[in-house]
Design a protein around this nucleic acid. Structure first.
Lengths: 247, 247
DNA sequence: GTCTTTCGATACGGGTCGTAGCGTAACTCA
DNA sequence: TGAGTTACGCTACGACCCGTATCGAAAGAC
């Protein structure tokens, strides 16, 4: 995007680039999207307002670029088990989201994107796809540990795996975002643990055994559920001392 | 809020109320949060701008009220099984969220709320708590069917149940919102089915049996997971022909 | 009919957006 | 070293919106 380094004339100041992005983030924290003004950002960055418009055509573009890098600090150290990895990334993400600059920026950009296809695409590539490697990595490790079965071979298997990654990403990131920003409640270690337990074992797990399924069966449920999609399975891998936080 | 019907003087026009809220929603669709102007809303509603400010102190308040009712159309008809209920509500919610007025409004309000505690509280009560009855109802039905165990008695059990409801709400709503608005991809019936399967059975389910847990155990995983929290369990209830879309 | 409150219309000060014009600074290339 | 090219800071500008104030008229309550 900011390529094509003109080989002649005065070069763009990379210091100004950084100053502007930093100023944007800090202004966003203090003033929010609505309160953020280009003039103020320029002032904070020690730069003329015209310099902003030479690099970004409007507020949206500027803020997306300022926001995207915030998520790069997310990492997925090997915590030894799939369960621990999930808990860890949930807590890390929540911690990131609780910083005012992050949450304000993310939501502001997403809100604008609801009516701007170009912005949506930019978010998808600059944030979503960019962070999906976390799920890919977590799955890979779990497969090596034997907690999850390997992906089926062939293009069909790869597509299945990709869909699984997409789903898991939306579920984990969505749950954290929703709790932090919509429900407006804190993500505690206990909550993270319970979420991880739900993801690993599902609602129907944690039971002492297959419940004595009551005869109250479904009247006429549509025959959906043809074992399609994103398949993978396996046991937990490390003998947890208990169902560990059933939901 | 709009109570205390003054018993004297010219009464407020309820027609104007409706016209303003409708105009707000339609303006939001076409112009988005940033493009929405009070003057334009007044024009669309056939009302003077001053009339808006007599009822709502600013744009935020107006938009929240205009948005909240959009979610009231969500329902949870008994689809015969927990799995079907989950799938159904996921699809309904996604359908609702795909309408431009809904998604733009919701995200705009949430974005503003990141720096406005009062607005957060208003969202929590007017939208989140107001819709949580869907999860409560779904759980209750599943418990009656025997798909989930009854809540433990006493205040401890009630607290557990409340936490379970909160978690499930955040996971389902979060996943749908994240997929629709952040990942910017469509919620298809297949996706809903896979999400339901994940919720019911977890990542580690759908396997032909307990995998031959590889010896690659965790080096030193913290001893978390003390069977705390929100417990419930049970079998699926209806004999699915297969693991039905394992993840 | 009087009183009270709402309504529509208009005007205003304060602020932001995004652009334009200008002289200057910085760097490249001959 | 000097010409050419581009980025920069500064200032000013028109267009727009916000939220408020003011005023006469309208609509009910008593």
């Amino acid at each position: 995007m900011a390529d094509s380094p003109r080989r002649t004339g005065r070069p763009r100041s990379t210091a100004a680039d950084r100053a502007i992005l930093d100023a944007t983030r800090s202004a966003l924290v203090e003033l929010g999207w609505g309160g953020l003004t280009m003039g103020d950002v320029a002032l904070r960055a020690g730069v003329a307002k015209t310099t902003l418009y030479r690099r970004w055509s409007n507020k949206n573009e500027l803020v997306v670029d300022a926001v995207a890098v915030l998520f790069d600090e997310l990492e997925l150290p090997d915590r030894g088990s799939l369960r621990a990895d999930v808990e860890g990334v949930v807590l890390s993400f929540a911690e990131l989201l609780e910083r005012p600059e992050t949450k304000t920026s993310l939501m502001a950009v997403v809100a604008e994107a609801t009516r701007d296809e170009a912005l949506r695409a930019r978010i998808r590539t600059a944030i979503v796809e960019r962070q999906k490697h976390l799920v890919v990595e977590g799955r890979r490790r779990a497969q090596i540990r034997g907690e999850l079965p390997p992906d089926p071979p062939g293009p069909r298997g790869a597509a299945q795996a990709a869909r699984a990654v997409d789903l898991i990403f939306d579920v984990i990131a969505g749950a954290v975002v929703h709790r932090c920003l919509v429900s407006a409640e804190r993500v505690t270690p206990v909550w993270a643990r319970t979420l991880a337990a739900l993801l690993l074992s599902g609602l129907t797990a944690g039971a002492p055994g297959p419940a004595p399924a009551s005869p109250a069966a479904a009247p006429s449920p549509p025959p959906h559920g043809t074992a399609e999609e994103t398949g993978e399975a396996g046991s937990d891998g490390r003998g947890d001392q208990k169902p560990a936080g059933s939901v």
